[in-house]
């Protein structure tokens, strides 16, 4: 049976460019802070592309969207090289403070409302590795009043029935949810392993359309509302030492002011 036009899926995948100063790469000799694509977002893009591989023509479009400074366009290009069809870049100036989850969720709602054919499925990372907020997906579901399935480790979509089965990883086991579309899904690490972008796809991605918008085009205010008081590094671990024998160990413990407690 050919699915009717109304049953075709339009998927939106929000992605974020993150900067992780703590990242330590085994081979990369520069070993310093690098701009990266948020790994959970790559998983989200990968899942959308796999849905298309599975559902073929039933997936009508995969659109990626990012809200961030000019350089964020690289993140969109990567997603396009992985297989997304088009991008939306909500550009904010380099000098602007980074927006908070609520601002992002509102911007995403505005983007979704602009889509003429609507959006049936939003797949996002469960959190970004720079701020670890883990709020955007949930807030977006609230704003849109859509169902949400967070921390997904498996996603099966039935386009004809407009339904999805989502497996979530929870403490001590798995939880399976059946949800109606439109739906918000956030991705866990085990959902999939993102592919490498191949050269032909990277070339093709350069020609895929990216729509550029600003916060005011969307009528949203991205000014942060929460004031960050202080950011501190975790205390430095001091290196341990090796002792030659038990006597030395006891001597060291005494030196450190640790004494035996009599029972």
């Amino acid at each position: 049976m050919r699915p009717s036009a109304a049953r075709l899926l339009n998927i939106l995948v929000p992605v974020k460019r993150t900067i992780d100063y703590a990242v330590k790469i085994r081979v990369n000799p520069d070993q310093k802070g690098v701009d990266l694509n948020n790994p959970f977002d790559e998983i989200a893009v990968e899942e959308a592309v796999r849905l298309r591989e599975k559902l073929k023509d039933q997936v009508k479009s995969i659109k990626v969207v990012t809200i961030g400074p000019p350089k964020s366009i690289d993140t969109l290009r990567t997603a396009l090289a992985m297989g997304a069809d088009s991008g939306v870049h909500v550009e904010i100036p380099d000098s602007a403070p980074s927006p908070e989850p609520l601002g992002i969720a509102k911007a995403l709602r505005a983007v979704i409302e602009r889509q003429k054919e609507g959006v049936d499925l939003v797949i996002l990372g469960k959190q970004a590795i720079d701020d670890d907020s883990s709020q955007t997906g949930q807030m977006l579901a609230g704003l849109l009043d859509w169902p949400q399935a967070t921390f997904a480790s498996k996603l099966v979509v039935d386009a004809a029935k407009k339904e999805a089965n989502v497996t979530r990883e929870i403490d001590g086991g798995l939880e399976e949810l059946k949800c109606r579309l439109p739906l918000i899904v956030t991705t866990d690490l085990r959902l999939n392993e993102p592919r490498y972008a191949s050269l032909p796809n990277i070339m093709k991605a350069k020609k895929k359309p990216i729509e550029k918008l600003s916060a005011s085009d969307l009528g949203v205010d991205l000014t942060p509302r929460v004031e960050t008081l202080k950011v501190t590094e975790p205390p430095k671990r001091v290196g341990g030492g090796k002792v030659e024998n038990v006597d030395e160990l006891i001597a060291k413990l005494k030196e450190a002011g640790i004494t035996a407690v009599k029972a």
């Binding site: 990242v23 790469i25 990266l36 790559e42 490498y196 972008a197 191949s198 050269l199 032909p200 990277i202």
Partner: peptide, 9 residues
């Protein structure tokens, strides 16, 4: 063809 790494990982 080929693949180009897109991230440190």
């Amino acid at each position: 063809t080929g693949v180009l790494s897109q991230s440190p990982s």
